[in-house]
Amino acid sequence: MRKRSLIPLIYILFLMLPIYWLVAMSFKSTQEILGGFSLFPQTWTLASYRTIFTDPTWYWGYLNSIAYVSLNTVISVTVALPAAYAFSRYRFLGDKQLFFWLLTNRMAPAAVFALPFFQLYQAMGIFDTYLAVALAHCLFNIPLAVWILEGFMGGVPKELDETAFVDGYSFPRFFVTVFLPTIKAGVGVAAFFCFMFSWVELLLAKTLTAVYAKPIAATMTRTASSAGYELGLLAAAGTLTIIPGAIVIWFVRNYIAKGFALGRV
């Protein structure tokens, strides 16, 4: 038993090494980084973090990312809830085909759509707004949310619905007061996944924004251009992008395995 637990331990160590390196670099000055190899920062400096927190173009990047990611999560989960209910409870004309069609949108390479998306949102006059990115990310997040929620709802016995209707509940009241609390873990997991995929996506977010809604990940490309490669700044910005994900994951830690199985275990 002892020997077996070595495997996850080594794996986690392997996962943490690049992250450690990123964090360590963020506390070094650029001179120290370029000056040579050192396992730990020789002189700890917060200069990179100070730049990020005092320069509006940097910290607005974070706020922008958080704004469109939250908007997208709310939209995706809200519209996915009734749809997932329909897929899990009713049979209707073309339901299987529709479900597969939804999934195909997870498969479309974002690179394929970058240019047409730009033209579409430009024509609609919402280019460079939070709404544009939030709507564009619906393309892959809604199918995922429907898929996860359908899995969780499938685990709720149909007798629950039937009893409630016999008891005289109207559908909206049943859905909000009885059904939603039963699948709240599923809702949490779906929201987590929408947050995650919207947070990590960059290609569309970058294509659909210029100044006002520019995500942090796109701001980071600045470090490479101006005064050479500002590795310390890049590392600090990178470290900060890990934090929101680490926070939200803590909330769903008990459901995360089931969530990754899309509720189908």
Binding site: Y11, M196, E201, I216, G245
Partner: peptide, 11 residues
Amino acid sequence: MALPMLIPWNV
């Protein structure tokens, strides 16, 4: 284990 999946892809 889930942490790497939550890091933006360009990061």
